[in-house]
Design a protein around this nucleic acid. Structure first.
Length: 791
RNA sequence: GGGCGCAUGGCUCAGUUGGUUAGAGUGCUGCCCUCACAUGGCAGAGGUCGAAGGUUCGAGUCCUUCUGCGCCCACCA
């Protein structure tokens, strides 16, 4: 058999992938006689291209599902993509901008057409890249978070939660991205250490008649002031009070006095509240109820006015008087200048603080008062906490359990409405007539066109109809003047249903066709979720809550959290930093097997991965080693192994034979155990060590003379060539099966050439069974003797 | 302000429940293109396992403190 001396992955990978896919080896159907093993893919963004994080994430999943299939499970890996609301909308808007267009120009409908077009064009890129990686997903089950079934699930869930009082609408300070112009959840606005300034501003105290003696000293008295410290001076335009701590002796006398808000000359009151920290700044805090969560609370408590001074795009609005129209940061500069020249800026101190930033565009988020929809999380969290505490769901590595529990125990309500167009539109309808009436009862004193009424959470609002389909008439007043809410749902509102929506919920559940064999019945809960640390709150936690709430069962049993892929300096790989290594380039250069084996070898459980190009040499060289060892064996074993060899006993074997067979048992055991506990680098290390440094370096070398000359006396004793050939094939074939989950392509290529020697009829190594340990071949004595010999 | 992770040969990292001379990949030195493989083989140099203390017959491995990096969470403006 003529084989090149170098393994050429490019020639074989596509061929075998096509073969597997066309043979439907990835497709799984429920089989009551077998146990299920199911993974749902963390759906990549439709706009996405494969990065090293995906490569790691999906390699691990593929290893698991291939391994489990070989162990006799019905292995199902459900693939899919995520519509990724804000991210995708941003990408399409950028491409429109290059044509000199904006989504506002196009209008909602036309814009959505463009996004769907984009999705059709680019949505399959990452799927094809996953195939290059070798992922054995059941592509017949490919889902998209906005396809019909999944959209149905979203509506179903929204309505159910609303009916239960777990979804409500209200005016709150939320994270607002002025660039994306939408509300964000707390998770979508991660805090970032930011170097800012603390500005100390003098607010003059208004002279009372009593304090105003009829002398020329008037001016002096009027110049008394209180100093507040702020990091965002532009929000002072919306101040409606200054607060001090009631215990603060410095300010006790001033409580209740009136201040003149500089620049706008509005009168505001000094109030007292124990929330104020006496030690921070001057101990006096400006209160801007429409632009800060704490101030919002104070505003409600003390019945202050809520003045929104900003447009949704971050420019100042008409409430900012002459600053109206200025960008928020430009406005800040100008205000500081004016305060300074008026002698009202006492001092400026550098101040390091954590500020929220949009996770999609990194713009500094603005705490902004607006009316949004929320999910009340506490009731959902309680059973989800218990599921983990009781051990129904286990995290690997364990330490993430605490991270999960800490977050869940302090969970806050989830802001789910987004002011964008791409996504699931809220199944919420408003009756115009009923709303008008409701607006009369506004309890908030708002000075902004944005807000309507303040609604107590969980109270059903008049004029609001939540329904999966558009109602013809208002059930209250009968009016047909009904409009749907303009907003769409947070992208994660569909992702959190993924483990069951991807299996057909809710149709499957309602359908009469539901049988013991239905997917949900058979494959749910899934076996393991493989994901990265940064997505625990966004996704993992919420899936657990949704699973328990809607399926009455956990969505997965194990959660394997792998590390983050970084460059050699420790930075996260990202396009914007320009430090990415493109997996497709690595595959083209070294092969998918090399990529897979390398990345898994250097990834210790849950530890971050630091990558560089050279690290892929490890896998490439190993693939080549496997290739050449096989080449050697195939060249020396041309006839099928006689069946009689299969019943070989120890007495027929030399020391080297007994040793390598014993080592094979140990390797099999080691790899199996390592995979069972998600210890992938250990599994890779064991098979690498065995194959290269034991099988190739020692056994093959010892055996060469026998193969060269037939029966011959060797250091290890009288030896039969046929026995040696049998063992070579045996070790090689078993090693290939141990390696297959990690290196599917090269193992298939060689296995197909080896199988005739074994008289094996199986169509693919994929379908062969996982090696078992034969205790009869464990031979400590031979191992000790070989160690002595090797020294 | 909480929490977590990491500090082991030049570099990048493994080291299960504490046990004989601490491993791998890569790099380096020397010799080999020997008929599977130079993406290779053989031989070799190189580490007082961040610091200090403690537990123990025995610690890279457990406890305490400290130092230096990194990450996550957090409504002191």
């Amino acid at each position: 058999m003529e084989l090149p001396s170098r393994y050429n992955p490019g020639e074989v990978e596509d061929k075998w992938y096509k073969f597997w896919e066309e043979s439907a080896f990835f497709h799984a159907e429920p089989d009551p006689k077998k146990k299920p093993f199911c993974i749902v893919i963390p759906p990549p963004n439709v706009t996405g291209i494969l990065h090293m994080g995906h490569a790691l994430n999906n390699t691990i999943q593929d290893i698991l599902v291939r391994y489990k299939r070989m162990r006799g499970f019905i292995g199902l890996w459900i693939p899919g993509t995520d519509h990724a609301g804000i991210a995708t909308q941003n990408v399409v808007e950028k491409s429109l901008a290059r044509e000199g267009l904006s989504r506002q120009h196009l209008g909602r409908e036309k814009f959505l057409e463009r996004v769907w077009l984009w999705k059709e064009q680019y949505g399959t890129t990452i799927i094809n890249q996953l195939k290059k990686l070798g992922c054995s997903c059941d592509w017949q089950r490919l889902r998209f978070t906005m396809d019909e079934g999944l959209s149905e699930a979203v509506l179903e869930v929204f309505v159910r939660l609303y009916d239960k009082g777990l979804i409500y609408r209200g005016n709150y300070i939320i994270n607002w991205c002025p660039r994306c112009q939408t509300a964000l959840s707390d998770e979508e606005a991660p805090h970032q250490e930011t170097q800012g300034n603390l500005y100390y501003i003098k607010y003059p105290i208004k002279a009372t008649s009593k304090q105003k003696p009829v002398t020329r000293k008037t001016k002096e008295i009027e110049s008394e002031y209180i100093v507040v410290a702020t990091t965002r001076p532009e929000t002072m335009l919306g101040d409606t009070a200054v607060a001090v701590n009631p215990k603060d002796k410095r300010y006790k006398k001033l409580i209740g006095k009136i201040l003149i808000l500089p620049l706008v000359n509005r009168e505001i009151k000094i109030i007292s509240d124990s929330l104020v920290d006496m030690k921070f700044g001057t101990g006096a805090v400006k209160v801007t109820p429409a632009h800060d969560p704490n101030d919002y609370m104070l505003g409600k408590k003390h019945n202050l006015e809520f003045i929104n001074v900003m447009h949704p795009d971050g420019r100042m609005n008409e409430n900012a008087s002459r600053f109206s129209g200025l960008d928020r940061f430009k406005c800040r500069e100008l205000i500081l200048e004016e305060l300074n020249s008026a002698g009202l800026l006492e001092k400026t101190e550098p101040h390091l603080h954590a500020v929220g930033h949009c996770y999609r565009c990194h713009t500094m988020v603005e705490p902004y008062l607006s009316r949004q929809w929320f999910v009340r999380m506490k009731p959902l969290a309680i059973p989800a906490i218990n599921a983990v505490k009781e051990g129904s769901i286990k995290f690997y590595p364990k330490r993430w359990t605490k991270v999960y529990l800490d977050w869940m125990e302090n969970i806050r309500d989830w802001c789910i409405s987004r002011q964008i167009w791409w996504g699931h539109r809220l199944p919420v309808y408003y009756c115009h007539k009923c709303q008008e009436a409701e607006n009369q009862k506004s309890t908030l004193r708002l000075r902004s066109g944005l807000m309507v009424s303040e609604v107590e959470p969980s109270k059903i609002e008049n004029g609001v109809i939540v329904s999966k389909t558009k109602p013809e008439k208002c059930p209250v007043c009968g009016s047909s003047d009904i409009v749907q809410d303009e907003d769409v749902l947070d992208t994660w509102f569909s992702s959190w249903l993924w483990p069951f929506s991807a299996m057909g919920w809710p149709e499957t559940q309602n359908s009469e066709l539901r049988t013991k064999n239905s997917d949900l019945e058979y494959f749910y809960p899934t076996s393991v979720l493989v994901t990265a640390q940064e997505i625990i709150f966004f996704w993992v936690a919420r899936m657990i809550m949704a699973g328990i709430e809607f399926m009455d069962n956990i969505p997965f049993e194990d959660v394997y959290i792998h590390g983050t892929v970084r460059d050699l300096t420790g930075k996260k790989m990202s396009k914007s930093l320009g430090n990415i290594i493109d997996p497709i380039k690595v595959i083209n250069e070294f092969g998918a097997d090399a990529l897979r084996f390398s990345i898994v070898s250097i990834t210790a459980a849950g530890q971050d991965v630091f990558l560089s190009d050279e690290k892929f040499h490890l896998g490439r060289n190993f693939a080549n080693k496997i290739w050449n060892a096989s080449r050697f064996i195939l060249a020396n074993v041309s006839q099928p192994i006689a069946d009689s060899r299969l019943s070989i006993t120890k007495d027929d074997l030399s020391l080297a034979d007994r040793w390598i067979l014993s080592r094979l048992q140990k390797a099999t055991q080691g790899v199996t155990e390592a995979l069972e506990r998600y210890d992938f680098n250990e599994a890779a290390g064991i098979i690498y060590q065995f194959f290269w440094h034991e099988f190739c370096d020692w056994y093959i070398e010892i055996v060469k003379p026998i193969l060269a000359t037939g029966n011959q006396l060797t250091v290890t004793g009288q030896e039969g060539k046929a026995t040696t050939q049998f063992i070579l094939v045996e070790i090689l074939e078993t090693s290939l099966r141990l390696l297959h989950p990690m290196m599917p392509f090269v193992t298939e290529e060689i296995w197909q050439k080896v199988k005739p020697l074994n008289n094996n009829e199986t169509k693919s190594i994929m379908l062969s069974s996982w090696p078992t340990i034969n205790k009869n071949f464990i031979d400590e004595d031979s191992e000790i003797k070989m160690i002595i010999m090797q020294d």
